[in-house]
Design a protein around this nucleic acid. Structure first.
Lengths: 343, 343
DNA sequence: CTGTTAGCGCTTTCAA
DNA sequence: TTGAAAGCGCTAACAG
């Protein structure tokens, strides 16, 4: 519980000046090896600890990075953050996390407090904030600190983003279902104001078109990303005159709901209806009837986001806009393997 | 991209002094409402943003709290962090997350960088650090900033902890299996150097004893917390002369492994063997054969941890040691419901 | 109710 | 190679 030792204490003890101590500690080449060593030694002796705060104030660099997500207790975001943290830690940065619950007000508030905290950058999966009107967001854009989007992005000139190719993901999933012999493929979509969900939908549509399967509006239902919603949507689909023989869901949770509903109505999966989800949530693999899904390699996405951030920090002025697009992986499991249901 | 405005800029514009501006901004009661209003107004006009760094340096309070866990991409820890963040946000604190991967070196390093970053407190789920020998940890204990344990604690005088009653959890799970009519209950344990795993084991043992069921060493296997380990352990158990009719696992993942192994050997669950896991991971609920488990209410645990931290910060000197013990909830699902397998 | 002054701990010109 | 001095932006004690 002793008083903190500062560079002044070290300086006094060594009869040198604080500036020299500072330089020695920072391995400044203009300091003689002798004093360097001496300073380092006494520093540890006196239990000296660098005060990053003072350093940050002086240098205008806090070595803190803000990460904004809707919620952290989703495997997808948690994995991204894991990637970010691991990568950034190696560069001496700390990660401050903020949750928005998809609430615009919270998004703005988080940006605000992060800016006040003088973070060196903000990495965010953007949700409902209005990028044209929101004052906080505009303020953020005017800052010199890098802003990066991951997963959920908005297209803004000069702003980098790290995403997966959601169009390709939608396409792959749909093509796979077609390859399995499905003819009437329905799609459980989520709010298509989000680019990611719109792109998945467009990929789905394109795959149909490329295979000369007519697009049927009634087979597309926009719903929430949860089990109950998946059930409800599936109920509706099954009431159609001509019900689907496959469901591609933009969410693993609604895919699970769909499966539960299908089962409860005695419909065989995958024989009668194939199902593919999205995100490769852990549970999809664990189910007895394992669920096919799209893997977004979230840890990799996080690491990449961190790397791009580091690049931008290093390059100072020339913040080249980077649009990194990771390729999604289709994971085929039982819920959509007619050929080889033992898979 | 304009230069940051400081309180000095505001002061100059208003022909008052920076101190007054500071006071006005901080709603100091000794400032006239007139100037207060004026300052606030010009502050927003000039796009003023408080620099928390300077404030922190001056006050010795960063309003940052460090949270150390083994990994963030586990539903349990992610949920705890969710709770912590939500609660702390309301008090103006930010959460810096660190992952250790159960590695002592990383644990120490994280403590070190967090202290350098001048966090106002450290909330951690401790794993392998040696509290008697590790220099960094001792340094931490000598600090005036609060240290709190959640979930995985060590008993240290003066240090508060927020845990669940793991003994009770082990007891409840075992008692439930006994109530289901199981006679030979095995236990998949994890490294019992951790208090939590030891306590679960002890609860298990106590329940057996209270029900006059002899404790059989051969039914207890210490294993890792993953599917493969669960399978392996179960294989061993099934080779016993007198195999178990129930498995209580300290981990949902090894419980899942156990279930997979049992099934592959054609053993009926729960009719022939009942299974109870631990942690109430999301997947346990989603399985067709849903898995009974112990819910640790992680979000609540996080919120409670945050609240205790806030208390300690407010009470300054009198850091009363608090040992909050939350009651675990047994969630009975299909994997252990002989009576009512439809449950 | 407001101004003056000093300082949190560190870095960084400028000089020597 | 090192020292002296100023300042990052803010707050608090003291004075008026």
């Amino acid at each position: 519980m002793t008083k903190k030792t500062t560079i002044y204490d070290i300086a006094k003890k060594l009869n040198i000046t604080a500036a020299t101590v500072s330089r020695a500690l920072n391995k400044n080449p203009k300091i003689s090896d002798a004093t360097k060593e001496l300073v380092l030694k006494t520093a540890t002796e006196m239990n000296y600890e660098q005060n990053k705060l003072a350093q940050a104030l002086k240098n205008g660099k806090s070595y803190n990075v803000g990460v904004i997500v809707s919620r952290i207790d989703s495997n997808f975001f948690a994995s991204i953050i894991r990637g970010i943290e691991e990568e950034l830690f190696n560069h001496g940065y700390h990660v401050i996390i903020c949750q928005t619950n998809n609430n615009e007000k919270m998004e703005a508030e988080n940006i605000n407090t992060l800016l006040n905290a003088q973070v060196d950058g903000i990495l965010m999966s953007i949700s409902n904030i209005n990028i044209d009107k929101n004052i906080m967001f505009k303020k953020l854009l005017n800052k010199k600190i890098p802003l990066l989007f991951f997963d959920r992005k908005k297209s803004i000139p000069g702003i980098s983003s790290i995403t997966i190719d959601d169009f390709s993901a939608g396409y792959k999933a749909t093509q796979h279902l077609i390859d399995e012999g499905c003819k009437r493929i329905s799609h459980l979509s989520v709010d298509r104001n989000f680019e990611i969900f719109r792109d998945r939908f467009l990929g789905y549509k394109q795959a149909l078109s490329d295979n000369n399967i007519p697009f049927d509006e009634s087979l597309v239902i926009e719903t929430k990303s949860n089990i109950e919603a998946g059930k409800e949507a599936t109920k509706k689909l099954l009431k159609l005159q001509n019900p689907p023989d496959a469901i591609f869901s933009s969410s693993d949770f609604s895919a699970l709901g769909a499966i539960q509903e299908l089962k409860s109505q005695g419909i065989k999966i995958p024989q009668e209806v194939c199902v593919v989800g999205f995100s490769n949530e852990p549970f999809t693999k664990f189910m007895e009837l394992s669920i096919s899904s799209i893997d977004q390699s979230p840890v990799e996405m996080g690491k990449t986001t961190a790397r791009v951030f580091i690049q931008q920090i290093k390059n100072k002025e020339k913040h080249v806009e980077q649009k990194v697009v990771l390729e999604p992986k289709l994971i085929i499991r039982k819920s959509s393997s007619k050929q080889n249901p033992s898979k």
